[in-house]
């Protein structure tokens, strides 16, 4: 589905991605983890074509990304910080994105699911962070694309909404989607992900299931296993 070869990216002198290789063929939920500044968002943005890599190639469904934009029809993306044009109302924003992308079959279902209908006529500037994130989630999932990329989906959400999000993710997984997710909340990652991809210094440092990670680091607890990876103690 997604295949990344020898990806390099620098911002000024700072190397963010350094020959990264990654293949994602399986369905299910893949968590991309790593310390701050390890290149998670850069990797995601490269897949979306928002960041142009210096070297290397990315193929999605066998097609190269370079100078191509139509592949984005197959991707739903949830940005890290939900910044929307403030003078639009929620319903206007939804309409606008539908106008750009085409019909959204699941819009109403998701609006009800996340309780967005309570503030659907409000302007986006007047919404709280959590409300914006719910709008963001509706916007992401309503097109039902086979590949979903979520950058910090739990940001600003209350515990009830996080539970709902988990429920939704399990449903999406069951319907055969591939979901890439980054998060700093380890409990969330552990409960949803099938595979962990750990980035460090611009490369893939670990790639496997939660169980394999625990085995490799000799830790019973997921959070400790990640911490061990971060400090490099198991090497």
């Amino acid at each position: 589905m997604v295949s990344i070869q020898n990806l390099h990216k620098k911002f000024g002198k700072h190397t963010v991605l350094d020959g990264l290789e990654l293949n994602i063929d399986d369905h299910g939920i893949i968590a991309v983890l790593g310390p701050n500044g390890s290149g998670k968002t850069t990797l995601i943005k490269s897949i979306l074509g928002m960041v142009v890599p210096e070297k290397g190639s990315i193929h999605i469904n066998g097609k190269p990304l370079k100078n191509n934009w139509e592949y984005r029809k197959e991707i739903d993306y949830l940005p890290q910080i939900a910044n929307f044009p403030g003078n639009l109302t929620v319903i206007e924003l939804l309409k606008m994105i539908k106008d750009l992308r085409g019909e959204a079959k699941r819009e109403q279902e998701l609006i009800n699911f996340f309780g967005v209908n309570k503030f659907i006529d409000k302007k986006l500037t007047n919404l709280s962070g959590g409300m914006k994130q719910k709008v963001n989630l509706v916007l992401t999932f309503m097109f039902d694309s086979p590949l979903v990329i979520l950058d910090e989906p739990t940001t600003g959400l209350d515990p009830v909404s996080i539970l709902k999000l988990k429920e939704l993710l399990h449903k999406e997984k069951a319907s055969g989607k591939t979901i890439l997710v980054t998060s700093h909340i380890m409990e969330f990652v552990e409960s949803v992900s099938d595979r962990i991809v750990f980035l460090w210094e611009g490369k893939i440092y670990f790639n496997g299931s939660v169980e394999e990670l625990k085995e490799k680091t000799n830790q019973r607890d997921f959070e400790h296993a990640i911490a061990t990876l971060l400090t490099g103690e198991h090497v």
Binding site: M50, R72, P79, N83, F84, P85, I97, L100, R101
Partner: peptide, 16 residues
């Protein structure tokens, strides 16, 4: 001022 709008659009299937 429309940076946010731009970022939203960049992830959509629209030519840059």
């Amino acid at each position: 001022n429309s940076r946010e709008f731009t970022e939203l659009l960049l992830a959509q299937p629209v030519k840059r």
